[in-house]
Design a protein around this nucleic acid. Structure first.
Lengths: 108, 108
DNA sequence: TTGACGGACCTCGCTTTGCGAGGCACCTTT
DNA sequence: AAAGGTGCCTCGCAAAGCGAGGTCCGTCAA
């Protein structure tokens, strides 16, 4: 998958996923990998900075949770502001797809 | 329209447009603006570098044409290699859209 | 005649993003 | 003991879009 095309789609992906419930980083990567059948592997270098930025803008929050074996995971969950932002982003996404499709033509 | 989302879509747009026939820069900008009803204005700072890059890779060629009033325009036209590239890009685009749509969910 | 406007081309520096590579710590399995 | 998986992170690079700037020329109104 082209690296440039992906740009900008990450927040949309993350917020959409977190809308289904809290998740931690590693889990997000695995989920994406599995759901796409391995087509797309979200990279750590893209994920963590994106997550931190979404948290800084208060669209998501995080909390540490200790597992039975004593290890920790950082869970992220969506905030009300994040849901609103997601709604706007979705609209923008649809506009974007329509726009490009308008030039590329309907899919064969 | 979000600046980041656009990234990577420009070559796709340009090649698709040039598939319909030769065009010059200013004309491309106007065409995009009109066809999108003003929603999307392709910026010069994005267009010209993209055009030059496509020419450097020989996906398109350019030639100057003099108008009746003596002024010049630089027309770009697609090359066979560009058409092949466009086909591949289109496939990639469809995969990309499917991928994101898979997480965002079908459009409301 | 002058000046404003639009057509038409271009480049530079900034910002943002994804990515590769690296690092660290801990647990489980071999 | 070693290897591999889990789990978090950051750094520097490359690439793209954008704003702002610049240039040249034709046309049209004042």
């Amino acid at each position: 998958m082209d690296r440039e095309l992906l740009k900008g789609s990450t927040p949309l992906l993350l917020l959409s996923l977190l809308c289904e419930g809290p998740m931690y980083g590693y889990q997000i990567i695995e989920t994406v990998r599995q759901r796409t059948g391995g087509t797309y592997t979200l990279k750590e270098g893209a994920l963590y900075p994106a997550l931190h930025k979404l948290e800084a803008t208060e669209f998501i929050t995080s909390y540490w949770e200790t597992q039975d074996n004593g290890r920790e995971r950082r869970y992220y969950s969506i905030q009300p502001a994040g849901e609103a932002f997601l709604t706007a982003k979705k609209k923008e996404w649809n506009q974007f797809v329509d726009m490009v499709q308008g030039f590329v033509g309907p899919r064969a």
